[in-house]
Design a protein around this nucleic acid. Structure first.
Lengths: 156, 156
DNA sequence: GCCGGATAGTTGAAGCTTCAAGTGATCTAG
DNA sequence: CTAGATCACTTGAAGCTTCAACTATCCGGC
């Protein structure tokens, strides 16, 4: 028998998966709603600005930035185009290797991020961090890492 | 001082939040990719079929189904329209209260779900459930519930 | 040197979600 | 009994993401 009955989830496993699925479905809209309302920014746009702000010279190659933000290069390209239009990011080809493009956070972009950060941190605290015990915060690091490691290992 | 310096995240809290954010950004595409490739279904479409399949008479009101699937009524309405076009779901007004609409899983829809379920369960196992220890699976129930409870309490 | 392949990024179309506005049914106050 | 409010749902447009195709640069062998 090549493909017999699959191993269905046990009741506990089902509850865990449903709990995670609910978070996957409902947390992103909640985060986006706050950022959209208070800063007219999507969560992914915020991540791009935040990622650049912590890089040396506030500059990162597009591909490195995409990996940092857990997004595809195509998605990033579209988003950076929008951010460039608002003068929060600038793009310039890398002098050493013409294939690379460097994205740089502008002064305006940094100001925008600084203004938006408190509100964002506040909702992350109230919906996630402050909802969990200290142990759970530690557990979340391990749980999240294990899941993303599995996703990384998918190209096998 | 009305709004002083916000309480930034501690290093451990940051790592936990980043780990969760990575899951939010990368797990849904991974699930969608498998379902799209093997069943030409989005994860949300799968959830709709699965939700109906477990309901009495494989029928649920649109608004109850939306809540069950953690989606907006508008989103569900669009998705059910697509599923109806493929003859996997049927809609009919509720006789008792003309405001409600009942969505029913068809025989074809049930067959489609049955055919898609093993592949979906397999990826949920390999990316999530089997990646975690027993304790972590239990913890995930509590962590996820706490987060969604906070989101529920947002209308305050 | 130069051709083929690999790498980095962009683009446009198609598809999905959200938002705001709209429809129609039912409740409720007077 | 009826006018207005509320509720359940739908719709169309706008915006975002994905996918596949494309451009442009660089490396490696000959």
């Amino acid at each position: 028998m090549t493909s017999s009955e699959p191993r269905w989830l046990s009741p506990v496993e089902q509850r865990a998966w449903r709990a995670l699925a609910a978070v996957l479905l409902r947390l992103p809209p909640a985060l986006d709603a706050q950022l959209q309302r208070d800063a007219r920014l999507s969560h992914f746009e915020y991540l791009v600005l935040a990622g650049l702000s912590e890089a040396p010279a506030r500059t990162l190659r597009m591909s490195d930035l995409a990996a940092l933000c857990n997004g595809s290069l195509s998605r990033l390209s579209h988003v950076v185009k929008r951010l460039e239009k608002r003068d929060w990011v600038r793009r310039s080809p890398c002098p050493e290797d013409g294939r690379y493009i460097n994205a740089t956070l502008t002064e305006d972009g940094f100001a925008k991020l600084s203004a938006s950060a408190p509100g964002h941190v506040h909702i992350v605290r109230s919906l996630v961090v402050d909802a969990l015990s200290e142990d759970q915060v530690e557990q979340l690091i391990d749980i999240g890492t294990r899941i993303t490691d599995r996703i990384d290992g998918m190209a096998s």
